[in-house]
Nucleic acid binder design. Sequence first.
DNA 1: CTAGTGTAGCTGATGCATCAACTAACCGGT
DNA 2: ACCGGTTAGTTGATGCATCAGCTACACTAG
Lengths: 155, 155
Amino acid sequence: MDATPRWLTSEQQAAWDSFIRMQEKLIGRLSRRVQADSGMSASDYLVLAKLTETSGGRMRFMDLAKLVEWEKSRMSHQVRRMTERGLVDKEECPDDGRGAFIVATPAGVKAIEDAAPVHVEHVRRLFIDALSQEELDMLARISDRVLAHLERQAD
Amino acid sequence: MDATPRWLTSEQQAAWDSFIRMQEKLIGRLSRRVQADSGMSASDYLVLAKLTETSGGRMRFMDLAKLVEWEKSRMSHQVRRMTERGLVDKEECPDDGRGAFIVATPAGVKAIEDAAPVHVEHVRRLFIDALSQEELDMLARISDRVLAHLERQAD
DNA sequence: CTAGTGTAGCTGATGCATCAACTAACCGGT
DNA sequence: ACCGGTTAGTTGATGCATCAGCTACACTAG
């Protein structure tokens, strides 16, 4: 218990508020758009994108989870839902009796091929078009600094 | 249908990827922290913060919804859950038979007073400490530009 | 070989976000 | 007075994220 918490300066507070507001509005709008246009959530999109980027369109469950930095539980639920909708399949792993391969189905491949250009257009329209290349570079640099900072800390 | 989608340049793609990764990791970690420390979600925190900033700690339902830029449905569910946990109360509105006031309960006030310093510390530790004041200013400027851009567009 | 430990992945419960559809009260014009 | 449109707020369904706890297989040491 600290009796005298160190509040943020008004500049710090302003930066945080702007960032939070921007991020919420941007992500919210983008994900609603993608969902409305393609019937896929951002999570569906991400999983299918990573899967189809891989040669063979198949990946071990945990490799996929690590790649997108998700907990195994989240991935498990996600894969189950996507399996139910026919976007991916699970296959047994011959080398490891516990293991599973996740494979994009033809329908899954088609879904992401259809969704990708639309997704890119939204990203461009909502975000890229708002900023100059210098600003984009700045933002990338700042984001990388924050990321590095986060990764240095114990979770 | 555009047969030749305009993909992003590699610099644009890099900026977007960095931003998305940063934002997910930062928001995810912060919200898990706040939840673990105070038993409140970011939404609970926001609602209580806005309510208690108001003189009287009470606000009309839709005013509150507009203030935090939420849909009424989201607010309605949120208020119901918070009512069930004793953080806020609903009161009838004398001027408008449809209307409701949302009021922070004493428990709600205490909850946010306890949570606020912890919340600030996390924001500082996870985010503010990663960046210089110049970088914070940059980020605020960039965020405001994106926000303005979003607000110019039809939803 | 077997006992212990780590790893792969699943499950159920809970809370949150969005959508569509709904009720009820208000308000302005005729 | 009443009728139609608007506003206030609720509700139920569905999908997603997190947490805690679970099974089953694999690996390693003794």
